[in-house]
Design a protein around this nucleic acid. Structure first.
Lengths: 136, 136
DNA sequence: CTTTACGTTGACGTTAATGTCAACATTTGC
DNA sequence: GCAAATGTTGACATTAACGTCAACGTAAAG
């Protein structure tokens, strides 16, 4: 009834609320749950989403925008969920983190290249337009 | 028989050469052609790829790495192919360029956020590991 | 001349990520 | 109390992006 933001750590969300807020269908949310990406609680049959679920959903959607598959997103989400099983495990996790960072950095290089291409194109187009207008 | 690089603007490539160089299957290359993303010439039945085709393939693969669909990549490729049909068209194209830049910049924000998350996670893990080792 | 390598076009199969629809339960406003 | 809104679980349909396979052509190599 108040703000749709996680002002309160004990807020809950219905499936409709979340699907509206992030513009995904309820079907998709259930699908993500099916794939083990979110784990909302149940009040009877009905799904109850916590701010934590909401946060995970944000990560899922970010992953999607970046072109990761749901499987990949699942792995990424695993990196976000803390599990401290001794130094060995933590070292292993650290490696995964660093690999993920490398992946993302490579992706950023692609983006930067694409942006540069487009910006060059803009400059070229602008000068062309200017010339044509001057010649007019 | 020489370098696989476009040293010469009149070089040509077989479908196998390209598929090997970029580690995609020939099936995929034919598929992209089917979808209108590349237009290699034909020597009889056989496809002959030019450096220009190769360049387009690079763009296609970059688009894929960035999570764009083939349809979106098609539109992006259109932006790359010069067509000067008067100032009006050029203005329209300019708008598309700028929109694409905005899209890419938004994507870069996602990436930067993800990288930051992972780096923070690294720092946290490192300190944890240090503590556990010191306590040992 | 026949094998070997590479090319071609269908046609059908597959996987991911949903959409769609039916059939049903539950809660809520009037 | 009853209709409307919202929720649920299947089950099947769909789209994208290829993979796989069959059946065939061609060209160089031994």
């Amino acid at each position: 009834m108040e703000t749709p933001h996680p002002k309160d750590l004990h807020r809950t969300y219905s499936i409709r609320q979340l699907s509206k807020e992030f513009d995904v269908t309820a079907r998709a949310l259930r699908f993500y749950e099916d794939k083990g990406l979110i784990h909302p609680e149940r009040k009877g049959q009905t799904r109850i989403y916590s701010p934590r679920d909401r946060a995970r959903l944000q990560l899922i959607l970010r992953g999607k925008r970046l072109g990761f598959s749901l499987v990949e997103i699942h792995e990424i989400l695993d990196l976000y969920t803390p599990k401290d099983h001794g130094v060995a495990q933590m070292r292993a996790t650290l490696v995964k983190y660093r690999n993920q960072i490398e992946t993302l950095k490579r992706q950023r290089e692609d983006i930067d290249a694409a942006i540069k291409d487009m910006q060059d194109g803009c400059v070229w187009l602008e000068t062309q337009i200017d010339e044509l207008e001057a010649a007019q």
